[in-house]
Design a binder for these strands. Structure first.
Lengths: 225, 225, 225, 225
DNA sequence: AATGAATGAGCGTTCATTCAT
DNA sequence: TATGAATGAACGCTCATTCAT
């Protein structure tokens, strides 16, 4: 998990020094969020980590909410950048690229930063609308590639069906984080779990037919009443 | 998601009044944790919600850590109870029971409480050893049934392979929470996602062979150098 | 430093069990006062140390003040008992007994309990009238023997002069506590300091004449105006 | 007893306003410590006395320990300053200066502030390593002058003997505090006690010989076994 | 772009005390 | 005698935020 791109409050970050400060702030904030969790993330700790005063931190980010918003963007943008790089580097066949993406996601999710960042994001999304939006935007973008590849591998699926299969695969992979992630009990089984995931998802994408997903006729009729 | 069982500080909860207070405290704490997240959970808010003083709350739980520990046990025990009931009520064939468990998990995960509680638990487990232990103990118990059914459906799998497949299925289902859970963007697609999950997992459990998981021969040879 | 004698609230301590409880309470309280200082002495800690509830502790001592009062008596009585024993065991000549008392005081003041208890008492006496009374009563009793011996060694001294010399000697010895007491920097020099003290005090008591103390005539005349 | 010198947390006290605040804080803290004792000294009371919020007080002193540390330095530095001034103002002969110092110490110890501050320091030193270090450093510095004068008055004493005599005299004078100090029962006898002290210490310093302190030959022989 | 100073609310925790049982 | 339950105040400390400089 890496991160780039700098947003901030209008009027700040105009000079090079300001740009660097914002980068320092976001890196520090990300580190604290990952290490201590959201409940341990405070403006004070961020300022101390950067080596500036709280007053100065509030100059860049008038409120903690603003900082969090920027932090989320920062981390997410970095993640998407890596994600896209990963696909570009994969083989030329759709299936190879599909497998490459699964590999990338699992490898990434076992890094210390990703293992610790994403659960915070999921929890945050339950209580912070802003975080929820950022999170769903991230996954929507990440599924773009997956859905595209699914379409190539199995062209019989309708748009909705493809999207639902893509969501299932993406969500399933995310779900592995608290179990096979960095420092987790099943971390040493990552290689085998990855094989299971690839087999399972490749079979799913290859085999699935409309009838497997679509509501049965009787259900449809019932729904029409 | 429901919850029973009452632990507490030795010396408290001996009378009915105390037992009821502890129940009130845990219910209130659970509600706040679900509504506001861990960063919004404070002893003061819990006391206010129950209608007692902070001093009195600390009489039952000398520290927040103690309260959290009990809260986790309380919620988890309740969850496991429901889980076991669900399997007992399912059909007699192993495959039917397997499908019933998937159904139960997906249905449960779309309730307001589960959607909001578990991400907090995953995040907490990253920074609190106590929470991590409780969480993994919960999932270990929950996988007991799943693994047992996998063994019946596909007896060719070794112990380890069965456990890894069980973990993959369990984790995948959990991963759906932030996407199809209560109030989440894909919540209206639950029925279809559930069908995809069932088809995918049934196929996986039925089809999978040792060769799909075990390290390939070339990998083994490489590892021997 | 040891301690006996049990007082308490009227109505309590009537049975043997109650007497024992009071003894346990005072022993525990003394230990905490010595270990943690007065600022670390609380009803809760005492109750926990004894293994009873705070409610029960308040049955014996309705308020912390009551307990402290009893504690002071308890410790002081024990101290005086030892003090008297010490003199009784000393030789028969007045000078030998005088030296024996100095020896006893210095030896006692280097024990862990005395080193840690008395400074608490002196500090307490500055803010608690009750403690002040107890403290001065203790020293008044302790000086009784000293003054008596001074009178025997040097019969020329007037009553007041004898008392002032006795006070000076007693106070000087107490003053050694924070310097040569248990664990203090000069603790290893106790033997030499003791010799200095004995020489100094024996010379003082032997040599001193009225003129050394009494206000000069001019002062007396000035005071008469 | 007076006090000067200002330390504080790095980053604070840079402006005049901050410097004044720190002075106000230390003066208020000293006053409360003297009036109520250490058990009555709280950050809240200090903040209230100064007329600022607790948050602001913690801005200057992140922890109570930090404040206490600074307070001790503050008071001790002031004391040493006065002490040195006192000797400088005394007569030219060693004996005159020696007597002047005794006079100064006794006079100082009968002031309200000294009578109430030092017993707190002695008690504190028993439970707080930091306080112990500060206290012993103070007395070490205070004995420097005394030891120097003893050397001039009685050049026959070895280094160690001189130090032990100096310690005895210094400690003896301190010990008078709880008895002849401000508001104490023997306070009206200060003049006489002072004469006894001067006679006693002058005789001691003048007369004492190595043989009075050094372990007797028989003891040395016994120790060699 | 940055600092030092300040606020007011809230945090987890401990306190002495009361009281029904 | 003893317990369990409760109060209300105070404890040391951290928080996000503001603002003059």
């Amino acid at each position: 998990m890496r991160s780039i791109k700098l947003q901030n409050r209008p009027g700040t970050g105009t000079y090079i020094k300001g740009q660097e400060r914002i980068e320092q702030i976001l890196v520090a904030a990300q580190g604290i969020l990952i290490d201590k969790g959201y409940s341990g993330l405070s403006m004070r700790k961020i300022a101390t980590a950067v080596g500036i005063t709280i007053g100065n931190l509030h100059y860049y980010y008038p409120s903690k909410k603003d900082l969090l918003s920027d932090l989320l963007d920062h981390v997410i943008e970095g993640y998407l950048l890596e994600f896209n790089t990963a696909r570009a580097e994969a083989g030329s066949s759709a299936l190879d690229q599909f497998i490459a993406i699964i590999n990338f996601i699992v490898d990434d999710l076992t890094t210390h930063d990703t293992t610790n960042f994403f659960p915070e994001l999921w929890a945050l999304a339950n209580h912070d609308e802003q975080a929820a939006e950022r999170m769903h935007e991230l996954y929507r973008k990440a599924r773009l590639d997956i859905n595209d590849l699914i379409a190539q591998i199995n062209p019989t699926l309708s748009h909705q069906q493809r999207e639902e299969v893509g969501l299932f695969i993406s969500a399933s992979l995310e779900g592995l984080t608290p179990f096979i992630g960095n420092g987790k009990p099943w971390n040493s089984n990552v290689a085998n779990i990855k094989r299971i995931a690839i087999k399972s998802f490749v079979d799913l994408v290859t085999d699935i037919r409309d009838e497997d997903i679509a509501s049965s006729k009787s259900e449809l009729i019932a729904a029409c009443d």
